[in-house]
């Protein structure tokens, strides 16, 4: 599984990454987590804003910090 957090590096993007890490730790799911900060790569995902979360190529959340429960529902 590959998870991408899209965001240029603001606090909300970092918080999103933290939530995803917590969800992975809690579930024991193995995944490659990448924080994408490159604006062109972010734009290639077609998102209107950041932070955004992409799981195995599918965008799951845009413009907000997802809840841990949401992240768990995406990865289980």
């Amino acid at each position: 599984m590959e998870i991408k957090v899209l965001g240029p590096g603001c606090k909300k993007c970092q918080e999103t990454e933290r939530v995803v890490k917590e969800a992975l730790a809690e579930t024991g799911v193995q995944a490659d987590l990448v924080h994408v900060t490159d604006t062109m790569e972010i734009a290639a995902h077609g998102v209107f804003g950041t932070p955004a979360v992409v799981v195995d190529g599918k965008v799951k959340s845009v413009g907000k910090i997802p809840s841990k429960a949401d992240v768990i529902s995406w990865i289980k």
Partner: peptide
């Protein structure tokens, strides 16, 4: 900000999820 309705029509997840979350 104008956004791509075409991307939503094409069911591209970034566009669809952006519309849902905005």
């Amino acid at each position: 900000k104008m956004f791509c309705l075409c991307g939503i029509g094409g069911e591209l997840s970034g566009f669809v999820q952006s519309a849902k979350d905005t």
